[in-house]
C-alpha cells in the first residue's frame, strides 16, 4: 500500500549539467501529466522512473521499489521513450515481439502479446510492414505498443503525442483513458498543454530541472495569488460597467476591447484578486446599470496560462 511514485530530494546531473535538481513529489494512481519546456528535466525524470538512470542524489521509489537496476520492477513498468528507437529493417510486429521476449515470454506468447498491443495502438494493418515505411505517428504508436504489451502496472510515456495527427492524438488519448480505466497508472510528458489538460487534472510542472508545481490545474491557479485572475465578459454597455467595476477593491484593472462584430457593445477584460467577490458585485452592478452582460469566462485558468505564469 503505497503511492505510485515518491521522489525525495531527487537529483540527477550529467557532469556539470543539472538534469533534475532537488525534486520532491508524490504521484498517485491514475494519469499524471508531466509538463515543462525543453530542458526542464522531464525526460531525465522519466528515465529515472523507468530505471534507466541512477539518481545522483536523493531517493526515488516507484511502486514501492527503487527503480534503478531493479529487474523485478522492470516487469511492472512500461516505458515509451521519446527517441526513435525502432529497427527499420524489422516489422513492427517483429520488433515488439523481440522486446516482449526480453521479458521472458516464450516466442508464441510474445508474438500474441505484441499483436494485441499493436492492435490496441491502432496498427492492426501496418504491423507486418517494415518500420522503415512507418510514419512518425506510426513509430510513436509502435513505441507505445511495446510499452503496454506486457500489461504493466505503470506506463511511462515521454512525449507520446508528438508526431501524431489530430485523429491519432485522439486515439492515443483514448487508449490512455482505457488503460487508466483498466487500473494502469500513467505518467505522460508533453508539450501539448491543452491535450494533457483534456487527459488529466493531475500535473507536475518542471522548469530548469526543478519542480514548479504539482496538483490539479485549478488548485495550482488558486495558489498564484500574486497574479490577479483574468475574467472576460461581453456587455452591451461596457464603458459604464467598467467605470462601476473599478470602484470595487478586488478589481485590479479593467481593459476595454472590441466585442464581437455582430453584437452591439464591447468586451471587458477584468483583472480581479477575488473572483467570488467580483462575481457577487458584478451581478448586482450589471443589473443596476442594465449593462446587458452576455458572456463571462475566466481566461487564465487554463493550463497554458498557469504554465506561462509559472515559468515567466
Amino acid at each position: 500500500m503505497t503511492a505510485v511514485l515518491e521522489a525525495r530530494d531527487l537529483g540527477r546531473w550529467y557532469g556539470q549539467v543539472v538534469g533534475l535538481n532537488d525534486l520532491t513529489a508524490t504521484i498517485g494512481p491514475g494519469i499524471t501529466g508531466l509538463l515543462g519546456p525543453n530542458g526542464a528535466g522531464k525526460s531525465t525524470f522519466l528515465k529515472l522512473i523507468a530505471g534507466e538512470l541512477r539518481p545522483s542524489s536523493g531517493r526515488l521509489e516507484v511502486l514501492g521499489h527503487e527503480p534503478f537496476a531493479n529487474r523485478e520492477l522492470y516487469r511492472r513498468v512500461g516505458f515509451a521513450p521519446q527517441q526513435d528507437a525502432l529497427y527499420d529493417d524489422l516489422t513492427g510486429l517483429e520488433f515488439v515481439t523481440l522486446l516482449v521476449r526480453l521479458h521472458g515470454y516464450g516466442a508464441r506468447e510474445a508474438r500474441d502479446r505484441a499483436r494485441r498491443a499493436l492492435g490496441r495502438a491502432g496498427l492492426d494493418t501496418a504491423m507486418d510492414r517494415r518500420c522503415a515505411g512507418y510514419s512518425k505517428g506510426m513509430r510513436q504508436r509502435t513505441r507505445l505498443a511495446q510499452a503496454i504489451a506486457c500489461d504493466p502496472e505503470l506506463v511511462v510515456a515521454d512525449e507520446p503525442l508528438t508526431g501524431l495527427d489530430p485523429v491519432g492524438r485522439r486515439e492515443v488519448l483514448e487508449l490512455f483513458r482505457e488503460l487508466a480505466e483498466g487500473g494502469v497508472h500513467l505518467i505522460v510528458s508533453s508539450h501539448v498543454l491543452h491535450e494533457v489538460e483534456a487527459l488529466t487534472e493531475e500535473i507536475l510542472l518542471l522548469h530548469r530541472g526543478r519542480l514548479l508545481a504539482q496538483g490539479s490545474v485549478g488548485e495550482i491557479r488558486d495558489l498564484l495569488d500574486h497574479h490577479p485572475r483574468r475574467v472576460e465578459l461581453e456587455a452591451r454597455e461596457p464603458r459604464a460597467l467598467a467605470r462601476a467595476l473599478l470602484a470595487f477593491d478586488e478589481v485590479a484593472g479593467v481593459t476595454l476591447a472590441p466585442g464581437h462584430p455582430d453584437a452591439a457593445g464591447g468586451r471587458l477584460i477584468v483583472e480581479t484578486r477575488d473572483v467570488q467577490a467580483f462575481q457577487r458585485h458584478l451581478t448586482a452592478t450589471a443589473a443596476e446599470l442594465r449593462a446587458g452582460v452576455r458572456s463571462l469566462e475566466s481566461t487564465d485558468a487554463s493550463l497554458e496560462a498557469v504554465f506561462d505564469y509559472l515559468v515567466r
Binding site: 500500500m1 511502486l63 487500473g183
Partner: peptide
C-alpha cells in the same frame, strides 16, 4: 503549491507466464 497526496492502491498482481 498544493499539499502532495499519498494515494493508496492495491496493485494488480503480475499476470503472465
Amino acid at each position: 503549491m498544493t499539499t502532495a497526496r499519498t494515494e493508496t492502491e492495491v496493485y494488480r498482481p503480475f499476470a503472465g507466464a
